[in-house]
Design a protein around this nucleic acid. Structure first.
Lengths: 227, 227
DNA sequence: TTATTTTTTTAGGTATGCCTAATTTTAGTA
DNA sequence: TACTAAAATTAGGCATACCTAAAAAAATAA
Protein backbone atom coordinates (compact mmCIF):
# COMPACT_ATOMS: atom_id res chain seq x y z
CA UNK A 1 0.00 0.00 0.00
CA UNK A 2 1.08 3.52 -0.84
CA UNK A 3 1.83 5.96 1.94
CA UNK A 4 -0.02 9.27 2.23
CA UNK A 5 3.25 11.07 1.95
CA UNK A 6 4.25 9.23 -1.25
CA UNK A 7 0.94 10.28 -2.74
CA UNK A 8 1.69 13.88 -1.96
CA UNK A 9 4.96 13.71 -3.86
CA UNK A 10 3.53 11.85 -6.84
CA UNK A 11 0.68 14.31 -7.17
CA UNK A 12 3.12 17.20 -6.99
CA UNK A 13 5.36 15.69 -9.66
CA UNK A 14 2.38 15.20 -11.93
CA UNK A 15 1.16 18.74 -11.38
CA UNK A 16 4.52 20.36 -11.94
CA UNK A 17 5.23 18.31 -15.04
CA UNK A 18 1.88 19.32 -16.53
CA UNK A 19 2.14 22.99 -15.76
CA UNK A 20 2.85 25.42 -18.54
CA UNK A 21 6.28 25.72 -20.12
CA UNK A 22 7.74 22.84 -18.17
CA UNK A 23 9.60 20.25 -20.16
CA UNK A 24 11.59 19.13 -17.13
CA UNK A 25 10.71 18.80 -13.45
CA UNK A 26 13.78 19.94 -11.55
CA UNK A 27 14.43 19.23 -7.91
CA UNK A 28 14.11 22.88 -7.01
CA UNK A 29 10.84 23.31 -8.90
CA UNK A 30 9.40 20.42 -7.01
CA UNK A 31 10.69 21.59 -3.65
CA UNK A 32 9.23 25.02 -4.30
CA UNK A 33 5.87 23.54 -5.26
CA UNK A 34 5.77 21.34 -2.18
CA UNK A 35 7.02 24.13 0.05
CA UNK A 36 9.84 21.93 1.27
CA UNK A 37 13.60 22.24 1.10
CA UNK A 38 15.53 20.54 -1.72
CA UNK A 39 17.43 18.07 0.50
CA UNK A 40 14.15 16.83 1.95
CA UNK A 41 12.71 16.29 -1.49
CA UNK A 42 15.86 14.73 -2.86
CA UNK A 43 15.92 12.15 -0.12
CA UNK A 44 12.36 11.18 -0.93
CA UNK A 45 13.03 11.05 -4.65
CA UNK A 46 15.64 8.37 -4.00
CA UNK A 47 13.02 6.33 -2.18
CA UNK A 48 10.41 6.80 -4.88
CA UNK A 49 12.97 5.78 -7.44
CA UNK A 50 13.78 2.62 -5.53
CA UNK A 51 10.05 1.91 -5.47
CA UNK A 52 9.98 2.42 -9.25
CA UNK A 53 7.46 5.25 -9.22
CA UNK A 54 9.84 7.73 -10.82
CA UNK A 55 13.17 8.01 -12.50
CA UNK A 56 15.40 10.86 -11.51
CA UNK A 57 18.64 12.22 -12.83
CA UNK A 58 19.79 15.74 -12.31
CA UNK A 59 19.90 16.30 -16.07
CA UNK A 60 16.51 14.80 -16.97
CA UNK A 61 14.83 15.85 -13.75
CA UNK A 62 11.96 13.80 -12.33
CA UNK A 63 9.89 11.61 -14.65
CA UNK A 64 6.98 9.46 -13.52
CA UNK A 65 7.08 5.81 -14.54
CA UNK A 66 3.92 4.12 -15.78
CA UNK A 67 3.09 2.94 -12.28
CA UNK A 68 4.00 6.31 -10.77
CA UNK A 69 1.69 8.09 -13.17
CA UNK A 70 -1.09 5.67 -12.38
CA UNK A 71 -0.72 6.36 -8.67
CA UNK A 72 -0.56 10.10 -9.29
CA UNK A 73 -3.76 10.02 -11.30
CA UNK A 74 -5.39 8.01 -8.56
CA UNK A 75 -4.62 10.65 -5.94
CA UNK A 76 -5.74 13.35 -8.33
CA UNK A 77 -8.97 11.46 -8.81
CA UNK A 78 -9.53 11.26 -5.08
CA UNK A 79 -8.73 14.90 -4.61
CA UNK A 80 -10.99 16.11 -7.39
CA UNK A 81 -13.85 13.82 -6.45
CA UNK A 82 -13.75 15.20 -2.92
CA UNK A 83 -13.65 18.76 -4.21
CA UNK A 84 -16.64 18.05 -6.39
CA UNK A 85 -18.53 16.49 -3.53
CA UNK A 86 -17.75 19.38 -1.19
CA UNK A 87 -18.96 21.84 -3.77
CA UNK A 88 -21.99 20.08 -5.20
CA UNK A 89 -23.32 18.19 -2.20
CA UNK A 90 -22.00 20.13 0.78
CA UNK A 91 -22.47 23.48 -0.97
CA UNK A 92 -19.07 24.90 -0.19
CA UNK A 93 -17.72 27.63 -2.45
CA UNK A 94 -15.24 26.42 -5.05
CA UNK A 95 -12.58 28.44 -3.28
CA UNK A 96 -13.12 26.72 0.07
CA UNK A 97 -12.83 23.12 -1.04
CA UNK A 98 -9.15 22.67 -1.80
CA UNK A 99 -7.82 22.58 1.72
CA UNK A 100 -10.44 20.13 2.96
CA UNK A 101 -9.96 17.91 -0.07
CA UNK A 102 -6.26 17.88 0.65
CA UNK A 103 -6.99 16.10 3.91
CA UNK A 104 -9.89 14.00 2.71
CA UNK A 105 -7.92 12.56 -0.18
CA UNK A 106 -5.84 10.65 2.33
CA UNK A 107 -8.75 8.54 3.48
CA UNK A 108 -8.19 5.20 2.05
CA UNK A 109 -11.33 3.66 0.63
CA UNK A 110 -11.95 3.34 -3.08
CA UNK A 111 -15.52 2.45 -2.26
CA UNK A 112 -16.06 5.71 -0.43
CA UNK A 113 -14.79 7.69 -3.41
CA UNK A 114 -17.24 5.80 -5.62
CA UNK A 115 -20.15 6.61 -3.36
CA UNK A 116 -19.46 10.29 -3.01
CA UNK A 117 -18.78 10.54 -6.73
CA UNK A 118 -22.22 9.07 -7.38
CA UNK A 119 -23.76 11.47 -4.88
CA UNK A 120 -22.11 14.33 -6.76
CA UNK A 121 -23.66 13.34 -10.08
CA UNK A 122 -20.48 11.90 -11.63
CA UNK A 123 -19.35 15.01 -13.51
CA UNK A 124 -16.26 14.88 -15.69
CA UNK A 125 -14.73 18.06 -14.26
CA UNK A 126 -14.26 19.33 -10.73
CA UNK A 127 -15.46 22.74 -9.49
CA UNK A 128 -12.22 24.35 -10.66
CA UNK A 129 -12.75 22.98 -14.15
CA UNK A 130 -10.04 20.35 -13.85
CA UNK A 131 -10.80 16.94 -15.37
CA UNK A 132 -11.48 13.98 -13.08
CA UNK A 133 -9.60 10.80 -14.08
CA UNK A 134 -11.59 7.57 -14.03
CA UNK A 135 -10.64 4.61 -11.87
CA UNK A 136 -8.14 3.33 -14.38
CA UNK A 137 -6.50 6.74 -14.58
CA UNK A 138 -7.94 7.84 -17.90
CA UNK A 139 -8.80 11.49 -18.24
CA UNK A 140 -12.17 12.32 -19.81
CA UNK A 141 -12.09 12.70 -23.59
CA UNK A 142 -13.21 16.21 -24.22
CA UNK A 143 -15.39 17.48 -27.01
CA UNK A 144 -13.42 20.28 -28.60
CA UNK A 145 -15.27 23.24 -29.95
CA UNK A 146 -14.37 26.82 -30.83
CA UNK A 147 -14.60 29.26 -27.93
CA UNK A 148 -16.80 31.35 -30.21
CA UNK A 149 -19.81 29.07 -29.72
CA UNK A 150 -20.08 29.88 -26.03
CA UNK A 151 -23.04 31.06 -24.05
CA UNK A 152 -22.78 33.56 -21.23
CA UNK A 153 -21.67 32.02 -17.96
CA UNK A 154 -19.93 29.10 -19.65
CA UNK A 155 -16.74 27.91 -18.01
CA UNK A 156 -14.29 26.10 -20.23
CA UNK A 157 -10.77 24.85 -20.65
CA UNK A 158 -8.41 25.76 -23.49
CA UNK A 159 -7.41 22.55 -25.29
CA UNK A 160 -5.73 23.97 -28.34
CA UNK A 161 -5.90 26.34 -31.27
CA UNK A 162 -6.98 26.21 -34.87
CA UNK A 163 -4.20 28.35 -36.23
CA UNK A 164 -0.48 28.12 -35.78
CA UNK A 165 0.71 31.45 -37.09
CA UNK A 166 3.26 33.14 -34.91
CA UNK A 167 1.14 36.28 -34.95
CA UNK A 168 -1.83 34.50 -33.45
CA UNK A 169 0.18 32.59 -30.90
CA UNK A 170 2.05 35.68 -29.85
CA UNK A 171 -1.22 37.47 -29.37
CA UNK A 172 -2.40 34.73 -26.99
CA UNK A 173 0.91 34.80 -25.20
CA UNK A 174 0.59 38.54 -24.74
CA UNK A 175 -2.87 38.02 -23.29
CA UNK A 176 -1.42 35.39 -20.99
CA UNK A 177 -3.78 32.70 -22.29
CA UNK A 178 -2.13 29.32 -22.59
CA UNK A 179 -2.99 25.67 -22.90
CA UNK A 180 -5.20 24.38 -20.11
CA UNK A 181 -6.15 27.88 -19.18
CA UNK A 182 -9.56 27.99 -17.54
CA UNK A 183 -11.81 30.65 -19.05
CA UNK A 184 -15.09 32.01 -17.86
CA UNK A 185 -17.36 33.63 -20.44
CA UNK A 186 -18.58 36.82 -18.78
CA UNK A 187 -20.52 38.33 -21.63
CA UNK A 188 -21.44 37.63 -25.24
CA UNK A 189 -21.87 40.76 -27.36
CA UNK A 190 -24.60 40.00 -29.87
CA UNK A 191 -23.57 42.70 -32.30
CA UNK A 192 -20.47 40.96 -33.66
CA UNK A 193 -20.19 37.93 -31.39
CA UNK A 194 -17.25 39.28 -29.33
CA UNK A 195 -16.77 37.62 -25.97
CA UNK A 196 -15.73 39.05 -22.64
CA UNK A 197 -13.54 36.44 -21.01
CA UNK A 198 -12.27 36.25 -17.45
CA UNK A 199 -9.33 34.04 -16.47
CA UNK A 200 -6.49 33.57 -14.02
CA UNK A 201 -9.18 34.55 -11.50
CA UNK A 202 -8.83 38.21 -12.28
CA UNK A 203 -7.61 39.11 -15.76
CA UNK A 204 -10.33 39.89 -18.20
CA UNK A 205 -10.32 40.70 -21.89
CA UNK A 206 -12.63 41.07 -24.87
CA UNK A 207 -11.90 38.68 -27.72
CA UNK A 208 -12.99 39.30 -31.28
CA UNK A 209 -14.97 36.56 -33.04
CA UNK A 210 -12.00 35.99 -35.34
CA UNK A 211 -9.83 35.08 -32.36
CA UNK A 212 -12.55 33.22 -30.43
CA UNK A 213 -13.11 31.04 -33.45
CA UNK A 214 -9.51 29.85 -33.38
CA UNK A 215 -9.38 28.91 -29.71
CA UNK A 216 -10.50 25.35 -29.02
CA UNK A 217 -12.11 24.67 -25.67
CA UNK A 218 -14.24 22.18 -23.82
CA UNK A 219 -16.98 23.02 -21.33
CA UNK A 220 -16.20 22.07 -17.77
CA UNK A 221 -19.60 22.49 -16.19
CA UNK A 222 -21.73 19.37 -16.14
CA UNK A 223 -24.47 19.63 -18.78
CA UNK A 224 -23.42 23.02 -20.09
CA UNK A 225 -25.70 24.36 -22.79
CA UNK A 226 -22.97 25.43 -25.23
CA UNK A 227 -23.10 24.04 -28.76
CA UNK B 1 -4.81 23.69 17.78
CA UNK B 2 -5.11 20.12 18.94
CA UNK B 3 -3.05 17.44 17.22
CA UNK B 4 -4.69 14.42 15.60
CA UNK B 5 -2.73 12.18 17.86
CA UNK B 6 -3.85 14.02 21.02
CA UNK B 7 -7.42 13.53 19.90
CA UNK B 8 -6.86 9.81 19.59
CA UNK B 9 -5.69 9.61 23.19
CA UNK B 10 -8.44 11.80 24.59
CA UNK B 11 -11.10 9.79 22.82
CA UNK B 12 -9.59 6.57 24.11
CA UNK B 13 -9.49 7.88 27.68
CA UNK B 14 -13.11 8.91 27.44
CA UNK B 15 -14.15 5.56 26.02
CA UNK B 16 -12.26 3.50 28.55
CA UNK B 17 -13.49 5.58 31.47
CA UNK B 18 -17.09 5.13 30.31
CA UNK B 19 -16.90 1.43 29.68
CA UNK B 20 -18.57 -0.92 32.10
CA UNK B 21 -17.13 -1.66 35.53
CA UNK B 22 -14.34 0.88 35.20
CA UNK B 23 -13.94 3.29 38.07
CA UNK B 24 -10.32 3.94 37.16
CA UNK B 25 -8.48 4.21 33.87
CA UNK B 26 -5.14 2.55 34.39
CA UNK B 27 -2.16 2.96 32.15
CA UNK B 28 -2.30 -0.65 31.05
CA UNK B 29 -6.03 -0.48 30.27
CA UNK B 30 -5.42 2.49 28.08
CA UNK B 31 -2.41 0.97 26.37
CA UNK B 32 -4.40 -2.17 25.68
CA UNK B 33 -7.31 -0.18 24.26
CA UNK B 34 -5.04 1.85 22.01
CA UNK B 35 -3.03 -1.18 21.00
CA UNK B 36 0.18 0.51 22.09
CA UNK B 37 2.79 -0.33 24.69
CA UNK B 38 2.57 1.24 28.17
CA UNK B 39 5.79 3.29 27.91
CA UNK B 40 4.50 4.92 24.74
CA UNK B 41 1.24 5.83 26.38
CA UNK B 42 2.87 6.98 29.60
CA UNK B 43 5.09 9.37 27.72
CA UNK B 44 2.07 10.91 26.04
CA UNK B 45 0.12 11.11 29.28
CA UNK B 46 2.83 13.34 30.67
CA UNK B 47 2.41 15.64 27.71
CA UNK B 48 -1.38 15.69 27.95
CA UNK B 49 -1.04 16.46 31.63
CA UNK B 50 1.27 19.37 30.92
CA UNK B 51 -1.35 20.60 28.44
CA UNK B 52 -3.96 20.32 31.21
CA UNK B 53 -6.19 17.88 29.37
CA UNK B 54 -5.84 15.16 31.98
CA UNK B 55 -4.54 14.46 35.41
CA UNK B 56 -2.65 11.27 35.98
CA UNK B 57 -1.33 9.53 39.05
CA UNK B 58 -0.64 5.87 39.24
CA UNK B 59 -3.14 5.50 42.06
CA UNK B 60 -6.00 7.52 40.55
CA UNK B 61 -5.25 6.54 36.98
CA UNK B 62 -6.14 8.91 34.15
CA UNK B 63 -8.88 11.50 34.65
CA UNK B 64 -9.97 13.99 32.02
CA UNK B 65 -10.07 17.63 33.06
CA UNK B 66 -12.97 19.83 31.99
CA UNK B 67 -11.10 20.93 28.91
CA UNK B 68 -9.91 17.40 28.17
CA UNK B 69 -13.45 16.11 28.33
CA UNK B 70 -14.62 18.85 26.07
CA UNK B 71 -12.01 17.93 23.48
CA UNK B 72 -12.83 14.26 23.83
CA UNK B 73 -16.51 14.90 23.23
CA UNK B 74 -15.61 16.98 20.24
CA UNK B 75 -13.69 14.12 18.63
CA UNK B 76 -16.47 11.75 19.52
CA UNK B 77 -18.90 14.09 17.86
CA UNK B 78 -16.82 14.19 14.70
CA UNK B 79 -16.45 10.44 14.67
CA UNK B 80 -20.13 9.73 15.21
CA UNK B 81 -21.29 12.34 12.73
CA UNK B 82 -19.07 10.77 10.08
CA UNK B 83 -20.36 7.31 10.92
CA UNK B 84 -23.89 8.56 10.63
CA UNK B 85 -23.18 10.21 7.32
CA UNK B 86 -21.48 7.13 5.92
CA UNK B 87 -24.42 5.01 6.93
CA UNK B 88 -27.34 7.25 6.09
CA UNK B 89 -26.10 9.14 3.07
CA UNK B 90 -23.43 6.88 1.60
CA UNK B 91 -25.39 3.73 2.43
CA UNK B 92 -22.57 1.81 4.01
CA UNK B 93 -23.45 -0.96 6.44
CA UNK B 94 -23.18 0.01 10.10
CA UNK B 95 -20.34 -2.46 10.43
CA UNK B 96 -18.27 -0.85 7.63
CA UNK B 97 -18.28 2.71 8.87
CA UNK B 98 -16.00 2.67 11.88
CA UNK B 99 -12.68 2.39 10.13
CA UNK B 100 -13.46 5.10 7.60
CA UNK B 101 -14.79 7.41 10.31
CA UNK B 102 -11.56 6.87 12.20
CA UNK B 103 -9.70 8.56 9.37
CA UNK B 104 -12.34 11.12 8.48
CA UNK B 105 -12.60 12.42 12.03
CA UNK B 106 -9.11 13.87 11.63
CA UNK B 107 -10.20 16.30 8.97
CA UNK B 108 -10.25 19.61 10.59
CA UNK B 109 -13.29 21.65 9.67
CA UNK B 110 -16.15 22.25 12.05
CA UNK B 111 -18.12 23.61 9.12
CA UNK B 112 -17.77 20.35 7.23
CA UNK B 113 -19.08 18.38 10.19
CA UNK B 114 -22.09 20.71 10.34
CA UNK B 115 -22.85 20.20 6.66
CA UNK B 116 -22.66 16.44 6.65
CA UNK B 117 -24.63 16.30 9.89
CA UNK B 118 -27.38 18.27 8.19
CA UNK B 119 -27.21 15.99 5.15
CA UNK B 120 -27.65 13.03 7.50
CA UNK B 121 -30.84 14.41 9.02
CA UNK B 122 -29.31 15.45 12.35
CA UNK B 123 -30.17 12.32 14.33
CA UNK B 124 -29.32 12.11 18.03
CA UNK B 125 -27.69 8.68 17.79
CA UNK B 126 -25.18 7.18 15.38
CA UNK B 127 -25.73 3.91 13.47
CA UNK B 128 -24.35 1.91 16.40
CA UNK B 129 -26.84 3.53 18.74
CA UNK B 130 -24.28 5.72 20.44
CA UNK B 131 -25.35 9.28 21.27
CA UNK B 132 -23.93 12.18 19.27
CA UNK B 133 -22.76 15.11 21.43
CA UNK B 134 -23.73 18.58 20.27
CA UNK B 135 -21.18 21.27 19.43
CA UNK B 136 -20.82 22.31 23.05
CA UNK B 137 -20.22 18.71 24.08
CA UNK B 138 -23.63 18.01 25.55
CA UNK B 139 -25.00 14.52 25.04
CA UNK B 140 -28.64 14.27 23.98
CA UNK B 141 -31.08 14.04 26.86
CA UNK B 142 -32.81 10.75 26.42
CA UNK B 143 -36.41 9.93 27.08
CA UNK B 144 -36.34 6.97 29.42
CA UNK B 145 -39.00 4.36 29.08
CA UNK B 146 -39.38 0.73 30.17
CA UNK B 147 -37.99 -1.77 27.69
CA UNK B 148 -41.40 -3.43 27.88
CA UNK B 149 -43.05 -0.79 25.66
CA UNK B 150 -40.94 -1.76 22.65
CA UNK B 151 -42.03 -2.61 19.17
CA UNK B 152 -40.32 -5.26 17.07
CA UNK B 153 -37.16 -4.05 15.38
CA UNK B 154 -36.59 -1.31 17.94
CA UNK B 155 -32.97 -0.66 18.85
CA UNK B 156 -32.33 0.91 22.21
CA UNK B 157 -29.82 1.67 24.88
CA UNK B 158 -30.01 0.61 28.52
CA UNK B 159 -29.99 3.72 30.69
CA UNK B 160 -30.90 2.27 34.02
CA UNK B 161 -33.23 0.07 36.01
CA UNK B 162 -36.37 0.53 38.06
CA UNK B 163 -35.47 -1.89 40.79
CA UNK B 164 -32.35 -2.21 42.85
CA UNK B 165 -32.77 -5.60 44.47
CA UNK B 166 -29.65 -7.73 44.36
CA UNK B 167 -31.70 -10.54 42.85
CA UNK B 168 -32.72 -8.46 39.88
CA UNK B 169 -29.30 -6.95 39.34
CA UNK B 170 -27.63 -10.34 39.61
CA UNK B 171 -30.02 -11.66 37.03
CA UNK B 172 -29.00 -8.92 34.62
CA UNK B 173 -25.35 -9.52 35.40
CA UNK B 174 -25.81 -13.22 34.63
CA UNK B 175 -27.37 -12.29 31.32
CA UNK B 176 -24.45 -10.00 30.68
CA UNK B 177 -26.70 -6.97 30.28
CA UNK B 178 -25.21 -3.82 31.74
CA UNK B 179 -25.58 -0.08 31.61
CA UNK B 180 -25.24 1.37 28.12
CA UNK B 181 -25.82 -2.03 26.61
CA UNK B 182 -27.31 -1.75 23.16
CA UNK B 183 -30.34 -3.99 22.70
CA UNK B 184 -32.20 -4.96 19.61
CA UNK B 185 -35.80 -6.13 20.00
CA UNK B 186 -36.06 -9.19 17.79
CA UNK B 187 -39.56 -10.27 18.61
CA UNK B 188 -42.51 -9.29 20.78
CA UNK B 189 -44.61 -12.22 21.96
CA UNK B 190 -48.17 -10.95 22.11
CA UNK B 191 -49.34 -13.65 24.50
CA UNK B 192 -47.68 -12.28 27.61
CA UNK B 193 -45.56 -9.43 26.25
CA UNK B 194 -42.24 -11.28 26.51
CA UNK B 195 -39.47 -9.86 24.37
CA UNK B 196 -36.73 -11.59 22.46
CA UNK B 197 -33.68 -9.39 22.75
CA UNK B 198 -30.39 -9.55 20.90
CA UNK B 199 -27.27 -7.81 22.19
CA UNK B 200 -23.48 -7.83 22.17
CA UNK B 201 -23.99 -8.59 18.49
CA UNK B 202 -24.72 -12.23 19.11
CA UNK B 203 -26.19 -13.10 22.49
CA UNK B 204 -29.92 -13.39 22.54
CA UNK B 205 -32.43 -13.99 25.31
CA UNK B 206 -36.14 -13.90 26.03
CA UNK B 207 -37.11 -11.50 28.80
CA UNK B 208 -40.30 -11.78 30.76
CA UNK B 209 -42.56 -8.72 30.94
CA UNK B 210 -41.76 -8.45 34.64
CA UNK B 211 -38.08 -7.99 33.84
CA UNK B 212 -38.60 -5.88 30.72
CA UNK B 213 -40.67 -3.46 32.74
CA UNK B 214 -37.79 -2.78 35.09
CA UNK B 215 -35.20 -2.06 32.45
CA UNK B 216 -35.11 1.58 31.38
CA UNK B 217 -34.06 2.29 27.83
CA UNK B 218 -34.12 4.95 25.16
CA UNK B 219 -34.66 4.38 21.45
CA UNK B 220 -31.63 5.04 19.31
CA UNK B 221 -33.18 5.03 15.86
CA UNK B 222 -34.32 8.40 14.59
CA UNK B 223 -38.11 8.64 14.81
CA UNK B 224 -38.63 5.21 16.32
CA UNK B 225 -42.29 4.32 16.83
CA UNK B 226 -41.97 3.02 20.40
CA UNK B 227 -44.16 4.62 23.05
C1' DT C 1 4.37 -11.40 55.99
C1' DT C 2 6.87 -12.89 52.51
C1' DA C 3 6.88 -14.42 47.77
C1' DT C 4 5.11 -13.91 43.30
C1' DT C 5 2.97 -11.58 39.76
C1' DT C 6 1.42 -7.52 37.64
C1' DT C 7 1.82 -2.73 36.77
C1' DT C 8 4.40 1.29 36.30
C1' DT C 9 8.40 3.66 35.25
C1' DT C 10 13.06 4.56 33.42
C1' DA C 11 16.48 4.28 30.00
C1' DG C 12 17.81 3.57 25.88
C1' DG C 13 16.78 2.72 20.55
C1' DT C 14 14.49 3.03 15.66
C1' DA C 15 12.12 5.01 11.52
C1' DT C 16 10.00 8.91 9.43
C1' DG C 17 9.99 13.30 7.68
C1' DC C 18 11.51 17.34 8.06
C1' DC C 19 15.54 20.90 8.75
C1' DT C 20 20.32 23.90 8.19
C1' DA C 21 24.94 24.48 6.72
C1' DA C 22 28.46 23.38 3.81
C1' DT C 23 30.14 21.34 -0.46
C1' DT C 24 30.07 19.99 -5.12
C1' DT C 25 28.34 20.27 -9.64
C1' DT C 26 26.24 22.60 -13.43
C1' DA C 27 24.96 26.48 -16.09
C1' DG C 28 25.16 31.20 -17.46
C1' DT C 29 27.91 35.26 -18.34
C1' DA C 30 31.73 38.53 -18.88
C1' DT D 1 37.90 30.63 -20.71
C1' DA D 2 37.35 31.85 -16.25
C1' DC D 3 34.04 33.76 -12.98
C1' DT D 4 29.82 33.78 -10.79
C1' DA D 5 25.34 32.42 -9.68
C1' DA D 6 22.19 28.74 -9.23
C1' DA D 7 21.08 23.99 -8.47
C1' DA D 8 22.12 19.60 -6.55
C1' DT D 9 24.14 16.95 -3.12
C1' DT D 10 26.18 15.48 1.28
C1' DA D 11 26.45 15.50 6.18
C1' DG D 12 24.59 15.97 10.40
C1' DG D 13 20.54 17.38 13.49
C1' DC D 14 15.82 17.58 15.49
C1' DA D 15 10.98 16.19 16.85
C1' DT D 16 7.48 12.79 16.76
C1' DA D 17 5.71 8.58 17.78
C1' DC D 18 6.58 4.42 18.29
C1' DC D 19 9.51 0.31 20.33
C1' DT D 20 12.24 -3.27 23.82
C1' DA D 21 14.48 -4.48 28.00
C1' DA D 22 15.12 -3.88 32.60
C1' DA D 23 14.25 -1.70 37.19
C1' DA D 24 11.07 -0.14 40.68
C1' DA D 25 6.69 -0.10 42.83
C1' DA D 26 2.30 -2.00 43.90
C1' DA D 27 -1.04 -5.59 44.28
C1' DT D 28 -2.13 -10.33 45.10
C1' DA D 29 -1.63 -14.78 47.00
C1' DA D 30 0.55 -18.31 49.85
Amino acid sequence: MLKTSDEKYLRAIYSVSHSENKQKVSLSDLAYYLDLKPPTVLERLHVLQKEKFISYTKTEGVVLTKSGEKEALNVIRKHRVWETFLHKVCKFGWNEVHEMAEQLQNVNSEKLIDRIYTLSGEPKFDPHGDPIPDKSGKLPVSVRRPLLNSIEGCRCLVLGVNEDSAEFLNYLTDLNIGLNEKLSVEKVFGYDGSLKIKYKNSESVILSPKVAEKILVTCTKHGCACK
